[in-house]
Simulated scan of single mutants.
Amino acid sequence: MSRTIWIRVTATVLIIAAVLFLIRLHNAAGEVSSLGSEPTAGRRLAQAMCSECHTVEPNARRAGRTAPDFVAVANLPSTTTLALNVFLRSSHRNMPNFILAPDDADRIVAYIMSLKRN
Rank of each mutant, 00 (worst) to 15 (best):
L82T: 14
P77L: 10
A72G: 12
P68H: 02
T81I: 12
S91Q: 15
A83D: 06
S78A: 15
V86S: 07
V71T: 04
V71S: 06
R89I: 03
R61V: 15
T80Y: 01
R61W: 03
A83F: 02
N75E: 00
R89M: 11
M95H: 04
D104K: 05
M95D: 05
A83H: 07
N94R: 11
L82F: 09
R61T: 14
P77S: 14
P102G: 08
H92A: 04
S90P: 00
R62C: 09
T81C: 00
F70T: 02
F70H: 06
P96L: 03
L82A: 15
T79C: 05
L88T: 04
F98V: 11
V73Y: 07
R65K: 15
P96K: 10
A63M: 01
F70M: 14
F70W: 12
T66D: 11
T66C: 05
S78F: 13
P77E: 07
H92T: 10
D69Y: 06
L84W: 00
N94D: 10
L88K: 08
L100I: 01
H92E: 02
A83I: 01
F87R: 05
L100P: 01
A101L: 11
H92L: 12
D69I: 02
I99P: 06
S78Q: 15
S78Y: 09
R65S: 13
N85Q: 05
T80K: 09
T81L: 07
D69L: 06
V86C: 05
S78N: 10
T79A: 04
D104H: 14
S78M: 14
V86R: 08
P102M: 08
L84R: 00
D104A: 11
P68E: 12
